Computed example of a mutant assay.
Amino acid sequence: ERSGAGRASVRGGGVTIDIDQRPDGTSLRAVAPGVELDLDVPLPEGHESLGVVVPWGPRRFQYTVKDVGRPVRGRIRLESGEYAVSETDSFAVLDHGRGKWPYSITWNWAAGSGHGRAIQLGGKWTDGTGMTENALFVDGRLHKIGDELAWSYDRTDWLRPWRITGSRVEVEFHPFHEKVARTNLGVVGSETHQCFGHFSGRARTDDGTWVDLDGLVGWAEEARNRW
């Protein structure tokens, strides 16, 4: 019920997921056919996250917390073997949401991290509400970006470069892998294209300083949902 506290869990269809949130961090354990995860996501002192309430009307809203650039360590076990997850070359993003979505909604989401810098960028679903979910993080400190951003990408070739721009954001995203998820049950359906890749460009802090984002690793996605 509260971001950063308590347990969230699910069991069904051969899948078990437990997310335990503590004052000093979050643990994630998951088991599914062919895969097992055991990860710890510490919460560094002074680390900040972005919480936004997006209003669609007096009785409909979505509250989201995007917690980007967290360290993570642990292991992933696949049928091919066990792999270590190290804080030196990995990062975690926690996404907490509460509210009631419209029946049909489309969003963009991008996040990247590396070397004490992280970005959180969103679009479409917040357009026209007066709120955004855009932020730059430098050494764990949040610099809120209130502008709506322009997203440019090729829906016929998702692996072409993406551009995300605004008065404080000049970002290009270069994908190296596309993950596609589709569900079509008539009234209910979804389609998500999530591309993983490298960022280049820059973003501006609250005091006007431009921060280099070259080399950040993460993803950019488009999701269309009917629910």
Results as ranks from 00 to 15, higher is better:
residue 174 H to P: 00
residue 136 L to T: 01
residue 53 V to A: 01
residue 41 V to Y: 01
residue 60 R to T: 13
residue 57 G to N: 00
residue 91 F to N: 10
residue 97 G to P: 00
residue 213 L to I: 11
residue 78 L to N: 12
residue 21 Q to V: 07
residue 97 G to D: 06
residue 12 G to Q: 08
residue 196 F to Q: 09
residue 48 E to W: 05
residue 213 L to F: 12
residue 71 P to G: 00
residue 173 F to N: 04
residue 154 D to W: 11
residue 55 P to C: 05
residue 41 V to L: 05
residue 109 W to H: 11
residue 35 V to N: 06
residue 183 T to Q: 14
residue 208 G to I: 00
residue 68 V to A: 05
residue 213 L to H: 01
residue 162 W to I: 09
residue 181 A to V: 13
residue 10 V to H: 13
residue 90 S to H: 02
residue 48 E to P: 02
residue 95 D to I: 10
residue 111 A to F: 04
residue 152 S to K: 14
residue 152 S to W: 13
residue 68 V to Y: 02
residue 197 G to A: 05
residue 144 K to Q: 12
residue 47 H to L: 07
residue 65 V to F: 00
residue 140 G to C: 09
residue 120 Q to R: 00
residue 64 T to W: 06
residue 90 S to G: 01
residue 83 Y to A: 04
residue 97 G to F: 12
residue 114 G to T: 12
residue 212 D to F: 08
residue 88 T to M: 14
residue 203 A to D: 03
residue 85 V to K: 04
residue 12 G to M: 09
residue 167 S to Y: 09
residue 141 R to D: 03
residue 93 V to G: 05
residue 146 G to I: 10
residue 119 I to P: 00
residue 173 F to L: 03
residue 114 G to L: 01
residue 91 F to Q: 08
residue 143 H to S: 10
residue 203 A to M: 14
residue 139 D to T: 04
residue 197 G to I: 14
residue 72 V to D: 02
residue 110 A to Q: 00
residue 152 S to M: 14
residue 49 S to Y: 06
residue 214 D to T: 14
residue 23 P to H: 06
residue 138 V to S: 03
residue 67 D to Q: 07
residue 68 V to L: 00
residue 91 F to R: 07
residue 28 L to Q: 10
residue 151 W to M: 07
residue 212 D to I: 07
residue 138 V to D: 08
residue 66 K to Y: 05
residue 194 Q to R: 12
residue 54 V to G: 02
residue 110 A to Y: 00
residue 158 W to Y: 10
residue 144 K to Y: 11
residue 60 R to M: 11
residue 62 Q to A: 13
residue 210 W to P: 03
residue 78 L to A: 13
residue 89 D to K: 10
residue 190 S to R: 03
residue 217 V to P: 01
residue 162 W to S: 05
residue 10 V to M: 15
residue 148 E to D: 12
residue 141 R to K: 12
residue 155 R to Y: 14
residue 37 L to N: 01
residue 164 I to R: 00
residue 44 P to N: 03
residue 167 S to K: 15
residue 102 P to R: 13
residue 60 R to W: 09
residue 217 V to R: 10
residue 225 N to W: 12
residue 117 R to A: 07
residue 97 G to N: 15
residue 184 N to I: 01
residue 99 G to D: 08
residue 125 W to V: 03
residue 139 D to S: 13
residue 181 A to C: 11
residue 24 D to L: 07
residue 108 N to A: 07
residue 174 H to I: 13
residue 163 R to T: 14
residue 73 R to V: 08
residue 137 F to L: 11
residue 124 K to G: 02
residue 187 V to E: 13
residue 122 G to L: 04
residue 170 E to K: 15
residue 66 K to S: 00
